[in-house]
């Protein structure tokens, strides 16, 4: 994948945002950014597209609704219809609460599962590679160095001008 990365560290999010914007304007390829909290506006600065995960939620939710309605109808009206208080076997309104709960359950579990799969979060034995202090109090911007006309010195200069406190090369992406 990436042959190496140039990582610029920042003490605050403003420097990171500025560097991300300027790097993009200068035509540099941003590999990723690493931050201790969700920095608002960074997605736009890095030119990320909105996530498509809401579609997974919709899909899982609809599956839950349909599955729950089908199952309640099947158990109550097909498999073994039992007369409860003279109500019709397929007493649709009474099936709404369970269908609603099941919708929420599948939607929530499906969304989180999709997130974990999409971003590769999973329990692992070894520790992941984490850039120093990015889960505590530093922000990092990782630039790809494999471009044809990539100029390391110029890129480092751009980051320093934006407020980077440290710029270093990293062999392998975290």
């Amino acid at each position: 994948m990436t042959s190496g990365l140039l990582v610029a560290y920042f003490e605050d999010e403003n420097g990171l945002l500025r560097a991300a914007r300027e790097a993009r304007a200068a035509g540099l390829k941003i590999h990723d950014a690493y931050t201790p909290y969700a920095v608002h506006g960074l997605d736009a600065a890095m030119g990320q597209r909105p996530s498509r995960l809401p579609w997974v939620t919709l899909l899982c939710g609809l599956t839950g609704t349909l599955l729950a309605f089908w199952f309640q109808r099947w158990t109550s009206a097909v498999s073994w219809p039992i007369n409860v208080g003279g109500k019709p076997a397929h007493s649709f309104p009474a099936f709404i609460p369970v269908a609603f709960e099941f919708t929420v359950l599948l939607a929530a579990l499906g969304t989180v599962a999709a997130l974990f799969i999409r971003v590769g979060l999973r329990p692992r034995v070894g520790l992941p590679r984490v850039l120093p202090r990015v889960t505590n109090d530093r922000f990092a911007l990782a630039l790809c160095t494999d471009g044809e006309d990539f100029n390391g010195a110029a890129a480092a200069e751009l980051c320093r001008n934006a407020g980077a406190c440290e710029v270093s090369a990293v062999e392998e992406a975290p």
């Binding site: 990723d32 950014a33 890095m46 971003v119 992941p128 850039l131 990015v134 889960t135 975290p174």
Partner: peptide, 9 residues
């Protein structure tokens, strides 16, 4: 779960 603060995540 291997969280590393990535903006993609």
């Amino acid at each position: 779960l291997g969280w590393n603060g990535s903006q993609k995540t």
